[in-house]
């Protein structure tokens, strides 16, 4: 698309249109994760004891810390958007950078958790895991798939914020044109909401 045609298309759809588009995309993501939560719900109902036993392998405090980290990154992102809209470009850059760092920290901690479990032989189809009850086998299967796909979305979010960081630095995103940052923020917050549900389901199962 030529630049004038691109600008014409963006003007036609407006910031509100772009935002609507982003929300619609988030609805699709809700259903995508929803399929995983559906599987979790059914198996948790069926194998409550096994899920309880397996969840004991999780370190609740590490999970809680990771949760706090992601929540704080959402704060940083919300502040970054507010800062940009007030014209505080450098503050917004700082906050976007902080969001990326916290997101990366989240992934790092997650990787350590995964490595610890894999090191102990608790991964799908391992002899160690298959020796355990059905509930535990399914719990860990769901754990890796759900936190894995969630982690992938965190990574994608980090990349997107990297892009907005660059565009903000170059002045392409500004108080007059904050839309891309706002919509990226929506994506980041959505990823946070998914984790808000994943945390109790995998770390706090009683």
């Amino acid at each position: 698309m030529t630049q004038p045609a691109l600008e014409a298309a963006e003007a036609r759809i407006g910031a509100a249109g772009a935002k609507l588009g982003m929300w619609l995309f988030l609805f699709t993501e809700l259903l995508f994760f929803g399929g995983m939560f559906l599987l979790y719900a059914v198996y948790r109902g069926r194998y409550a004891a096994g899920f309880h036993a397996a969840a004991a392998e999780e370190n609740t405090y590490v999970g809680a810390f990771n949760t706090a980290l992601l929540l704080t990154s959402s704060l940083a992102m919300a502040l970054a958007v507010a800062a940009l809209r007030r014209g505080r470009r450098h503050l917004s850059l700082l906050l976007q950078g902080a969001t990326i760092l916290m997101g990366a920290g989240f992934l790092a901690i997650k990787s350590v958790e995964w490595a610890a479990k894999i090191g102990r032989g608790l991964y799908p189809d391992s002899t160690v895991l298959l020796a355990r009850s059905h509930g535990e086998v399914l719990f860990f299967g769901l754990y890796y798939v759900m936190t894995g796909i969630h982690g992938l979305h965190v990574l994608i979010g980090i990349c997107l914020i990297g892009v907005t960081l660059g565009l903000t630095a170059r002045g392409r995103l500004s108080a007059e044109q904050p839309t891309l940052l706002e919509n990226t923020g929506l994506f980041w917050h959505f990823v946070d909401v998914v984790w808000i549900y994943l945390f109790p389901l995998f770390y706090l199962v009683t």
Binding site: R44, L71, S74, L75, M77, A78, G185, L186, H189, F190, D192, V193, I196, Y197, F199, P200, L201, L204, V205, T206
Partner: peptide, 24 residues
């Protein structure tokens, strides 16, 4: 006790609601 999961999901929903309402 037995209402643990319900409570956990309830609190999670309040948290999610806050993120949706204010951050989003």
């Amino acid at each position: 006790a037995d209402y643990g999961v319900l409570a956990a999901l309830g609190i999670a929903s309040i948290k999610a609601g806050l993120v949706l309402a204010f951050f989003m």
